[in-house]
C-alpha cells in the first residue's frame, strides 16, 4: 500500500477513500458498535464487582472439566481459548486462500473453522450445564441447602468455618449478580459464536456452489472473517474479566 497511498488522490472522486469495499467498511462499523455493546456489559459487570465487599474467586468457580471434579482451575477454559484461537487461524487461512481464488482451500479452511466454532459451543454447553446442575452446600437461615449456580442463586460465598456437609465446605450465599453477568455475557458471546458458525456455513455452501468464482472475488469471506475474528477478540476480554482476574 505504501507507494500507492502516496500517489493516489483518495478524495478526488472515483475511488473509495478508505480503499475498501463498502460492505467491509460497514462490517467494521458494525463491529465497532458491537464492541461498545460488549464493553457496556463488561463495564457494568466491573462496576457491580467494585461495589461488593466480596466476590467469588474464579479459581473456585471454574475448577472442573469433563471427568475432573474440582481442583483444576483454568484448565477447561484454556482449552476453550485454544479452540477459539485455532479457529481464528483457520479463518485467516480461508481468507488467504480466497485472495488467491483457491476454492478448495477456502472450503477446507472454512470447514475447520466451523468445526472449531461448534467445538467451542459444545464446551460452553458443558460448562453451563455443569454450573447450573452442580450441588454445593450453602448455609441459608441456619440450614444447609444444595445450590447450583443460576440466575437467582450463587453458591460461591465465603466458606463457613468449622462446618462440613458430607465432607465438603459449607459456604454462605454469594453475590447474586454473578450468575446474571456470567450467563448473560458468555451467553451473548456464545450467541455471536453461534451466528458466526451459521454465517460460515452459508459461506461454505456459497463457495461450494462456485458463487464467488462467478463473482470473480472472495470478498464475502473477508467480511465473514472480520466477524469471526471479532468473536475471538471479545473472548479475550471475557476470558480476562471472568476467569483470570
Amino acid at each position: 500500500m505504501s507507494t500507492a497511498t502516496v500517489q493516489t488522490k483518495w478524495w478526488s472522486g472515483g475511488k473509495s477513500p478508505f480503499n475498501v469495499e463498502y460492505g467491509k467498511l460497514m462490517m467494521w462499523y458494525f463491529l465497532m458498535s458491537d464492541a461498545f455493546t460488549f464493553g457496556a456489559f463488561l463495564i457494568s459487570y466491573g462496576s457491580i464487582r467494585f461495589s461488593q465487599n466480596y466476590w467469588p474467586n474464579p479459581n473456585h468457580v471454574f475448577d472442573s472439566a469433563p471427568g475432573i471434579h474440582g481442583g483444576a482451575p483454568l484448565l477447561f477454559v484454556s482449552i476453550m481459548t485454544f479452540i477459539l484461537i485455532m479457529s481464528s487461524v483457520t479463518m485467516v487461512l480461508a481468507v488467504h486462500e480466497g485472495h488467491h481464488g483457491n476454492r478448495i482451500g477456502v472450503i477446507k479452511y472454512l470447514f475447520w473453522t466451523i468445526i472449531g466454532g461448534l467445538a467451542f459451543l459444545g464446551c460452553q454447553a458443558w460448562e453451563w450445564h455443569h454450573l447450573i446442575t452442580g450441588e454445593h452446600a450453602v448455609l441459608v437461615n441456619g440450614k444447609v441447602e444444595l445450590w447450583g449456580q443460576n440466575m437467582r442463586h450463587n453458591p460461591w460465598g465465603a466458606i463457613v468455618e468449622g462446618v462440613n456437609y458430607n465432607g465438603h465446605h459449607v459456604t454462605t450465599p454469594g453475590p447474586v449478580a454473578f450468575g446474571g453477568y456470567f450467563f448473560g455475557i458468555t451467553g451473548f458471546h456464545g450467541f455471536h459464536v453461534f451466528s458466526g458458525v451459521i454465517i460460515n456455513i452459508i459461506m461454505l455452501i456459497m463457495a461450494w456452489n462456485g458463487t464467488f468464482d462467478r463473482k470473480g472475488h472472495y470478498l464475502m469471506i473477508e467480511k465473514a472473517g472480520l466477524y469471526w475474528h471479532f468473536v475471538d477478540l471479545v473472548w479475550v476480554f471475557v476470558f480476562l474479566c471472568f476467569y483470570l482476574i
Partner: peptide
C-alpha cells in the same frame, strides 16, 4: 454481612450451631 474476614472466610452466625446442619 458481606465483609470477608482475614482469610477470606466468615464466622458462622452466632445463633447457628454445626449440629443443626440439615440437608435439603
Amino acid at each position: 454481612s458481606t465483609m470477608p474476614t482475614e482469610h477470606g472466610t466468615k464466622p458462622a452466625p452466632a445463633e447457628f450451631k454445626a449440629g443443626e446442619a440439615g440437608g435439603k
